[in-house]
Simulated assay, not measured.
Amino acid sequence: MNHEELDASLDSFGDALASATRVTPGNALRPEDIAVAGAKPSDEVAQYALHLGDDALILAQRLSHWISRAPEIEEDIALGNIALDVLGHARSFLTYAGLAWDKTEDDLAYWREEEEFTSLQIVEQPNGHFGVTIMRQLIVSIYQHLLYSRLLESADETIAAICAKAVKEVDYHRDHAIAWTIRLGQGTEESAEKMRHALEILWPYTGEMFQDEEMHSELGDVAVLPSSLREAWDAEITSVLAEAGLEIPKSGLAMAHGRAGEHSEHMGYILAEMQVLARKHPGASW
């Protein structure tokens, strides 16, 4: 399906809100639209979409824990809205991936086991204090913004369309994380120390984001080589940290292989909470 055909298939849905955090006029691609369009991906493309969807799904689950717990009411709303945005990305990618295997987004979210998830280990790391969540969001949103921007030119029309919506939302997520990183880094001695602590515990997981796999090369113009994002990501995050008065830690990188289904001890708890209702009441709808 080309861009013109995809646009035509969306006309019947009318205008939609593109984001929980930003209102964008025009048609916004929704998971339901992808399912109706029925553009079935190859197994390889579906696996790539699954990677992107799993990252977003687990990050959304982590961010949603801040609802009613953020340090101020505006942040309670902001983090909740960011979680909704990211969940929307997950739904779109998982819906598209599932078309290859006759599975729904719910099948992929609720009925896979831990070793079947392909998310990066950084997104499953605990929220910790507010500074840890902000630092994780800074690291991931800069990465996602670069990735989705490149995927606008993906040879796969549906992935490109999903990213056309997602990149606008992640642009806000990135700005939000940058503003808080600078505010906390330049704040009190305590807030700066907490941001340094956040960097120390999260930085080891950054290396996994840029690991190339055979799949990326085989997909050609459909995918983006993660390693090709490293230089731009390094430059942007170094600039932000410098403005915040923070330095990149000298700690080594973790042996993280989330893409291969190898996860930290935290993943099982995330999935147990996320999947319990669907598994306790199979087939239930509401």
Rank of each mutant, 00 (worst) to 15 (best):
H3E: 14
D7N: 14
G14S: 14
L17I: 14
G26M: 08
N27A: 12
N27S: 11
A28G: 13
L29G: 02
L29C: 02
E32C: 06
A37F: 06
G38Q: 10
K40R: 15
Q47R: 15
Q47F: 13
Q47V: 10
Y48P: 01
L50H: 06
L50C: 03
H51A: 04
G53R: 14
D54Y: 09
L57I: 07
W66E: 05
S68H: 14
R69S: 13
R69C: 08
R69L: 10
I73W: 11
E75K: 13
D76K: 05
I77P: 00
D85F: 02
V86E: 00
V86M: 00
L87W: 07
H89E: 10
R91S: 11
F93H: 05
G98H: 04
W101N: 15
D102Y: 07
T104Y: 04
E105R: 14
E105I: 06
L108G: 04
L108R: 10
E113V: 07
E114N: 07
T118Y: 04
S119D: 04
G128R: 07
F130Q: 11
M135E: 12
M135Y: 07
R136P: 01
Q137A: 15
Q144G: 02
R150N: 14
L151G: 09
E153S: 08
E153C: 03
A160H: 04
V167T: 13
Y172H: 14
R174E: 08
H176N: 12
A177S: 13
A177N: 10
A179T: 12
A179R: 15
L184D: 03
Q186H: 13
Q186C: 11
T188F: 08
E190R: 12
K194G: 03
M195C: 15
M195Q: 15
A198G: 04
E200R: 13
I201L: 09
T206R: 05
M215Y: 02
H216G: 05
L219G: 05
A223T: 13
V224F: 01
L225A: 03
P226N: 08
S228Y: 00
A232I: 01
A232G: 02
W233V: 05
D234I: 01
E236V: 06
T238C: 01
T238G: 03
V240I: 13
P249T: 03
G252V: 08
G261E: 06
E265H: 03
H266S: 08
H266G: 04
M267P: 01
E273G: 11
A278G: 12
K280V: 06
K280L: 12
P282H: 05
W286N: 11
